[in-house]
Design a protein around this nucleic acid. Structure first.
Length: 570
RNA sequence: CGGGGUGUAGCGCAGCUUGGCUAGCGCACUAGUCUGGGGGACUAGGGGUCGCAGGUUCAAAUCCUGUCACCCCGACCA
């Protein structure tokens, strides 16, 4: 490709809405343009990177037996009614009508479509297991897109669906895909990624893992134990609680004026925050009160609470509701109330604690000596894990220290089970001629997110440094001062030779000033660069550089192509 | 959806407080000359409904009201 013809402008400054590195270089380098919130057009350079990533994904999915298909983006409501998700999924599912008034959705994931396809093609155990995948546009009406390609509404995803007779077979495929994912991310140049145990969320089903690109800009949090390898998304992570050996004490009312926060109470009474018990209030689906008690220094993990309560949406209870059950916001606790009238759940962090500071349900007063097991009737409450695991907590597996890290979810895998095959009535005949419901797995990779994460991991202050496996082109030829010493002719000749040899090459034939060309080349970030300049041509040389190291060496002009091929490993 | 912020040329910005001549600067873009190893110089140009709508006023980029878009934090999120 000739730079003089390449569509996509490079820019010295990033628009101010671009805050993170990958977003800035995406715009500055002419890879993508935003059309609206969460909607991007890809320019030629950006599309080439995406296609490189897709090619790697295809190869690896094919290797584990995947068969590529293509399902529609627009799906009829009926399919989503069959699975029940038309109603159960929230407003991130875009629903609309066609001219006849028929209901449709934009596919945000394709379990329904995959089962629809599979149930019309697979009738026998002899056809199982089977894995179908596609690389297709998804649309999710995210309430808030952000970070360039990190979180968008319309995006390209590789999604795969596997069908099995037995759970063991599903587990085997699951493991194979897990390994394929590791190869995919490695081949695409990502170094810093891990898979963590995760919450299945709206997908339903059992075992699932998320692949996280570990990066500061990540919006997901997870905990990692360097010693034993424990890794879990913050939404499912567990910790080992410290032994407190509290000394039992009588429940005693103390005056604690103007101390509605845990921090204030702890300070006022001269105890640490983990010696307090905090109450948090939500409403259940019928509008009833849910009271959660937990150690004062911990924070609620709403994902865990939702899982415990089997609720899709959580709403904080308002003060009126809390007061209705005899509790006083700011000084609330379960003591002195009737928990049989509302839902009371105690966080595991309170197990074995005998001497805590809790609210007295009276303005300006707390109680010391709170012992949940002693002071509450055990029929009135249940225990559960409700809180976020803080950085530095103790690993449940090995007792070592957990580290809290941030990451971007670039892939995930689920053992779905029969949730979709059953609800959508997919059956096959087993060896005994008996109808059976297959068990399923599903496996996703965010292609655009991968591109953003690769950029986040591979860049310097001048631009991205593409790994060879995903670079839009392999070679960048700069022609400095093209009119002298036949620089233009020699540069274009090298360019033509590369084209003939099937090497992906970009040549800067614009005659721009050196610095201008180099800055553009850095923003395009191709791994190999050849610089044709009159200065070196006079000595019969051309210069070769890599984008990453900036080390340079000289090639003889008449051996330039051959020397370059050596560098390319061809 | 809650909190905060920003809308003036493709991008970055000034002007707005205190209304007033033709709306300005840098980069980018066009033509030309010079220049030629890290965004070079000079000359001459093109490009704007000042986000949109309404209002106040002799006069609005500037003041008022409304509205839309985008960004950031949170909520939410296979």
């Amino acid at each position: 490709m000739k730079m003089s013809q390449l569509v996509g402008r490079r820019d010295k400054n990033a628009p101010k809405e671009a805050q993170i590195t990958s977003h800035q270089f995406l715009l500055r380098g002419g890879y993508a343009r935003q059309v609206s919130a969460g909607l991007f057009s890809l320019l030629p350079l950006g599309l080439r990177v995406i296609q490189k990533i897709e090619a790697i994904v295809r190869e690896e999915m094919n290797k584990v037996g995947g068969q590529e298909v293509l399902m529609p983006v627009v799906l009829p409501r009926e399919l989503w009614d069959e699975s029940g998700r038309y109603d159960s999924v929230g407003s991130e599912l875009l629903r609309f009508k066609d001219r006849a008034g028929k209901d449709f959705v934009l596919g945000m994931t394709h379990e329904e479509a995959a089962v629809h396809l599979a149930r019309s093609e697979i009738f026998s155990y002899k056809q199982l297991p089977a894995t179908l995948y596609q690389i297709q546009t998804k649309f999710r009406d995210e309430p808030r897109s952000r970070g360039g390609l990190v979180r968008v509404r319309e995006f390209t995803m590789k999604d795969a669906y596997s069908f099995h007779e037995k759970d063991e077979c599903l587990e085997k495929t699951y493991q194979e895909v897990h390994e394929a994912y590791e190869r995919i991310f490695q081949r695409a140049g990502l170094k810093n990624f891990i898979s963590v145990a995760s919450d299945a969320g709206m997908m339903g089903g059992g075992v699932s893992h998320e692949f996280m690109a570990v990066t500061e800009i990540g919006e997901d949090s997870f905990l990692v134990c360097d010693d034993c390898g424990y890794k879990a998304n913050r939404e499912v992570a567990k910790m080992k609680y410290p032994e407190y050996n509290d000394e039992s004490a009588e429940l005693t009312k103390v005056a604690t004026p103007d101390t509605t926060s845990i921090e204030d109470v702890a300070k006022f009474l001269g105890v640490s925050e983990d010696q307090t018990c905090k109450a948090v209030f939500y409403t259940d689906s019928e509008g009833g009160l849910v009271t959660l008690l937990m150690r004062g220094d911990l924070e609620v993990c709403e994902a865990k609470v939702k899982a415990v309560l089997s609720l899709k949406d959580l709403q904080m209870a308002d003060d009126e509701l809390i007061k209705k059950y005899g509790m006083v916001p700011g000084y609330a606790s379960a003591t002195g109330t009737d928990p049989s009238k509302y839902t009371l759940i105690l966080d595991d962090s309170l197990k074995g604690r005998k001497n805590l500071v809790a609210g007295a349900n009276e303005d300006g007063f707390h109680k010391t000596g709170f012992d949940p097991a002693r002071d509450l009737n055990e029929d009135d409450y249940q225990w559960a894990d409700l809180t976020n695991v803080p950085d530095g907590s103790t690993c449940v597996e090995c007792g070592s220290t957990l580290k809290l890290q941030r990451g971007v979810e670039i892939g995930n895998i689920f053992q779905l089970g029969k949730k979709y095959s059953e609800s959508m009535n997919m059956t096959y005949l087993d060896q005994n001629g008996k109808a059976q419901i297959p068990t399923m797995g599903c496996y996703g990779i965010g292609i655009g997110r991968m591109m953003a994460c690769i950029m986040e991991e591979h860049n310097d202050k001048f631009g991205p440094i593409w790994p060879e496996s995903v670079a839009p082109y392999q070679v960048h030829i700069n022609i400095l001062d093209p009119k002298k010493e036949n620089a233009l002719g020699i540069g274009l000749e090298l360019y033509e030779k590369c084209l003939k040899a099937g090497v992906e090459v970009l040549v800067d034939d614009r005659g721009e000033k050196t610095g201008f060309q180099f800055s553009d080349a850095d923003l395009i970030g191709l791994p190999h660069r050849v610089i044709i300049s009159p200065k070196n041509l006079k000595q019969g040389k051309v210069e070769y550089r890599t984008r990453a190291s900036r080390d340079s060496e000289l090639f003889d002009v008449d051996q330039a192509f051959e020397s370059l091929m050596v560098k390319l490993g061809k």
